[in-house]
Design a protein around this nucleic acid. Sequence first.
DNA 1: ATACTTTTATAAATATTTTAAGAAGTTTTA
DNA 2: TAAAACTTCTTAAAATATTTATAAAAGTAT
Lengths: 405, 405
Amino acid sequence: MEIKPKTVKSAQLKNLIVKQLYFDNALSCAELSELFDKSIPSITKAVNELITEGFVVEHGYAPSSGGRRPLLYSIKPDAMYILAIAMDQLSTRIQLLDLLNRPVADSLTFDLRLLNNDAALATLVKSINSYILKSGIPKEKIAGIGMGMPGFINVRQGINYTYLNAGSKSLVQYLHDEIGLPVYIDNDSSLIALAEQRFGIAKAQQNVMVINLGWGIGLGMIVNGEIFRGHNGFAGELSHIPLSDDDALCACGKRGCLETVASMQVVAEKAIEGINSGRATSLKDTGAAASKALLDDILDAAGKGDQFAIELLSDAAYKIGKALAILIHIMNPQTIVLSGRGARAGKILMAPIQQALHKYCIPRLAESTQLLISDLGFDAELIGAAVLMMENFEKEIKSVSRLEV
Amino acid sequence: MEIKPKTVKSAQLKNLIVKQLYFDNALSCAELSELFDKSIPSITKAVNELITEGFVVEHGYAPSSGGRRPLLYSIKPDAMYILAIAMDQLSTRIQLLDLLNRPVADSLTFDLRLLNNDAALATLVKSINSYILKSGIPKEKIAGIGMGMPGFINVRQGINYTYLNAGSKSLVQYLHDEIGLPVYIDNDSSLIALAEQRFGIAKAQQNVMVINLGWGIGLGMIVNGEIFRGHNGFAGELSHIPLSDDDALCACGKRGCLETVASMQVVAEKAIEGINSGRATSLKDTGAAASKALLDDILDAAGKGDQFAIELLSDAAYKIGKALAILIHIMNPQTIVLSGRGARAGKILMAPIQQALHKYCIPRLAESTQLLISDLGFDAELIGAAVLMMENFEKEIKSVSRLEV
DNA sequence: ATACTTTTATAAATATTTTAAGAAGTTTTA
DNA sequence: TAAAACTTCTTAAAATATTTATAAAAGTAT
């Protein structure tokens, strides 16, 4: 069916307003008019249509600055829902969120190995479809799916070159065909950065670097208020910059990568070494070499004051700090955020990182960047996935009308 | 005088068209319509007005792709002129350019020491005013002044925190008041990058890193097709990233900066050492320690096959290559351009830089970035200054009408 | 308390842009 | 060689958006 251009333009403005209200809690017509460079009558008309369509509600009056009080409008949280998916190498989380990023159904976490697993894609589709079914939310009320995953991703084409090959179709196209909802994917670290910049500790900042402290060291870059991916989507490869000339061989084939000296994997390996050589520590070698449980133990122990655990983390953090010094010289960010699983140990990491920054940064540069610890924590990637979906909402021209009952 | 909003909107579209035609030689109404998302009748009207106002001329027909041949329009090169200024620490160049970036008057180069020179600003103003007078071009025909200079610059406020303090006024405001033309300033390396991206070897590319090989090592960054400056304008401090732990003390107070091991200053110093210790070379110690003449001699000698000179440059280039490897990991640029004065020796620098990239880059990243040598050479900064002016042309709402005769 | 300023909201008048239809010029295809 | 298909350009009617004016509401000053 052909869509009349007139309808498209009008729908675009309405989608833009919905998107804006998703990001900014409540806004007046005057503010929206300013924001989109449209006249107040045009905005009023669009907003009123959105109210009758059930997407927008009045939200009381804002305090006046010397004139009539503006009527605020906000999004109706249950006007539609977003399916957010956060994957890592071993497990996947699915959660349905409303337009205030609040869960509307229990999250589902299940093991899903991405590497060398031909069944992964089919399992994922089955899990998503059954999750939606179990939630009791009709598909028509779900605006779409946002998904974060590791690997090298072509966002525009919706392909992950590393995992979940969907054969002749793109991953996004395949998922869309199997589930019947629009799907958007992006790199996990990028989505964490997006979450921090839209709803986290770096809200609305234009220039933010977010460190994803997980098993490896990821970097999500926000440049001019948007995710930055570089020419081929490879930007932010912080963990493989050459830091020292004569260190261990990295999986990437080079020597001296940050990853070989400062990742949580290395921390865990060193912990086992230390335990076995009789270091005084509350940590125990559980047998499973470098498991996730051990990493959690180390973070816990450090939090409780275990000197050995603190030492391990500090060593890693100092080296991360040196890499961040380089990043600051090149990007001059307003903020660096420590996020991801490892952000739990943020307070312990902070001091050695700052120390390295002072040693390796021009003072003026070190002073102009603030180092913060995420407060979104484990939810960051899920929220980032939801944001990704809403970022692309204006492209779904038919969305508003499709969702009309 | 208050400007009627209607006039503003119409003038803005016309200024946008003028700007676009400055960058893209010749365009049809259909292309302009596509570009600005305006209807063809609206574009036609604006273009016809611009023709009667003497800014635009017809430029023949484009080859057809299966339909009526489109009539192309291009800018009238002498509709107005741009005053481009390129400064370095010691000398300043002034040149009046037309809208095809062709000189319309001889360039003026004069010594102007920026450091510790209270008279510099007054000298600059006098030189500019007399240059304009001598050129015989009436001020009304000059759209404005673009100026590139070293130092830390706040582009929006038009202030250089390092040089040419104008007291209570901003530098830009001061120059505007003294000369009577709009003035825009930016960092020299940024303007060189801008020139390469608009009229040079990286034309129209979105993601370009330009190395300004001069006395030091500058970096101009093009991100998403625009100059990137970071949160405080400090982005691109490539020459002070920590490269090695135990090298010479840098002027910035740290150790191991790229600048201390790879700048042209270091090359010149090592050359004098080598000459005095009897190395076989055609170079001669002219007495003046580390002078610009010596640097030119080294570049020439290397070009003629002098082994010692080549060795000096290769050593520096390899270290620059290591820094570029880091830059590639973070930014994933499409292109890195070697520009600035030192680009003359580009061919000699190329091999050791590539060698370092292969050693320090993940292969997939090294392959996705091309390394090119500038063909704008010495003119890059002047052209960049002109581009800076035209970039801001749409802000000069009254420009078109002001220039009307 | 009242008048004044500032701001928002609404309706009518105005201006602009878009759309649509047709003409003219090219290339491709039958 | 002729017709079909495609693209650009022109013009007028229709749709759309913006401006202007007015009223209402809230704070500020007299």
